[in-house]
């Protein structure tokens, strides 16, 4: 396997947990993602070579550094690698990010830290966390599949800066974005707009 280059085709999505991550939650996330996409989703074993770097003076992980490490992993051709973590991630100029990816890149990074209801003082609800996690994964993978941000607030590719917007935009790509995705990426019956 060689480091993959950006491509708009997709044959599989592989999830890789980074940092402490309950196995049950990871499996639930993978299962829920499988229902949304039409390509196989598989949960990989942890990669020992991934070393999250802490941002100086902040108890947060450097998201861009972590994304670079993920992209450097051997990724099968036609596969998109999704790094999921419960660590709070950020970049130097922003106090936090939900996820990071490059347009046409081979890998994405999504943090569930700020997608959990309990982060905002609400009762824990794993179903909500998983649904938001899947929405963020589909958004970032959308970038890997060369989709840009969409101005339709109900589209998965809408730019969200807060968890309310993540909830508002739902789990569907809009009628402008969906046709731009590679054939077979969306699960049958998931082409609803």
């Amino acid at each position: 396997m060689e480091p993959a280059s950006g491509t708009a085709s997709i044959e599989a999505v592989h999830l890789l947990t980074v940092g402490p991550f309950p196995r049950l939650l990871a499996e639930e996330l993978t299962a829920r993602l499988s229902r949304e996409v039409g390509v196989p989703c598989r949960l990989l074993d942890e990669a020992a070579e991934i070393k999250p770097q802490i941002l100086p003076e902040r108890a947060q992980v450097h998201a861009d550094d972590l994304l670079r490490q993920l992209e450097a992993l051997p990724i099968e051709k036609g596969t998109k690698l999704v790094g999921v973590t419960l660590l709070d991630i950020a970049i130097p100029i922003f106090t936090f990010v939900f996820g990071r990816s490059r347009l046409g890149g081979p890998a994405t990074l999504v943090s569930l830290a700020r997608l959990k209801p309990e982060f905002y003082g609400m009762p824990a609800d794993p179903a909500v966390t998983v649904r938001r996690g899947v929405a963020e994964i589909l958004h970032e993978v959308g970038h890997n599949l060369e989709l840009k941000h969409c101005r339709n607030y109900s589209c998965l590719m809408y730019f969200s800066h807060d968890v309310e917007t993540v909830d508002l935009r739902g789990l569907s790509y809009c009628s402008s974005c969906a046709p731009l995705l590679p054939a077979g990426f969306l699960a049958t019956g998931r082409r609803r707009f």
Binding site: R58, A90, F94, T95, H161, D162
Partner: peptide
Amino acid sequence: TKPFDPDELS
């Protein structure tokens, strides 16, 4: 203020 809160900046 730096670093920016994405939500606040937006």
